[in-house]
Write a protein that binds this DNA or RNA. Structure first.
Lengths: 152, 152
DNA sequence: GTACGATAGTGAGCATGGCTCATTATGATG
DNA sequence: CATCATAATGAGCCATGCTCACTATCGTAC
């Protein structure tokens, strides 16, 4: 059947990749207004998920080297989003901990994301929305089957 | 109606962002095996679109500074993907030009992308595929209406 | 035809974010 | 206690982004 050939698949992937680029660019612009970089934001996000913890744990969760986490935490400490607290159970380790500013920043990111999702989807016909979600789930499942693992 | 509220919008955006991250990571891994970085690949891709041209034109097309293009071209020249040819009409300028290796690399990227799109979509029920594409187009249109511009 | 402003590219220098390897301090265990 | 493992960081590399200053060249106006 003419409509489900390589060209249509390719066109669909092009759309997906274009969306990828545009969403990334937009997020990055938004973060910059909060004084955050993508990597530092990723660390804050991880920290929110796994709680105050030594840098090793953050490195494992983010799948980067411990040395990289040292640098990111340096930046976040300098800009006031987190602090390094002593780990009461291990004097080698530090516990990376949110400051009030850090907590507020993450809360704000969550709120912005909710608002953005509303802008993206609220005006979409329910049927189309369901079709989009079903398609995305299918693709995510296929990626999983291809061996790509979610970073979370 | 209970199913089309903020939570479902948010869940859909989460899926989209997850897909974004996974596709980016996968692409980057693939490029690394070709000896390319994302930025250098982006330059090759741009060069393919606009043809041999001075670095200024590449900078404008990629929306980065001319100085950044100097660095990217330095890398691509060192790894043999492009050459700097004299511009016959302007002795200040250079024409960034594909080597055979560069042309082959871009062709290979296109082939890989087609193959990947096949893997993603060939097994998907046509109805779901259509629903996905319709949803993606809707989102892209909404982004456009929100003022986000495609980088191309 | 020359003098001057605009343009193409790059050097210098900075920030960020990856990495490895070496080092220090501490923990844990035999 | 000695030894090995682990947490963090210093040193130093590469890539990518930026600005600012500089050179070479272009084009134009005079």
């Amino acid at each position: 059947m003419a409509h489900y050939d390589d060209d249509s698949y390719n066109a669909a992937l092009d759309r997906l990749l274009l969306l990828t680029v545009m969403l990334n660019d937009d997020m990055q612009r938004g973060l910059a207004t909060d004084g955050l970089t993508p990597s530092r934001t990723s660390l804050l996000w991880t920290l929110r998920r796994i709680g105050p913890c030594p840098q090793q744990a953050i490195a494992a969760a983010m799948q980067v080297s411990p040395r990289t986490v040292t640098g990111l935490v340096d930046g976040l400490v300098a800009t006031g989003f987190v602090t390094r607290e002593p780990d009461p159970g291990d004097r080698r380790a530090v516990l990376v901990t949110f400051t009030p500013k850090g907590t507020a920043a993450v809360d704000s990111l969550i709120a912005q994301q909710r608002e953005f999702s509303r802008q993206l989807f609220a005006a979409m016909p329910p049927e189309r929305f369901d079709g989009l979600v079903a398609g995305l789930d299918d693709v995510l499942g296929t990626l999983h089957a291809l061996g790509l693992r979610s970073p979370f």
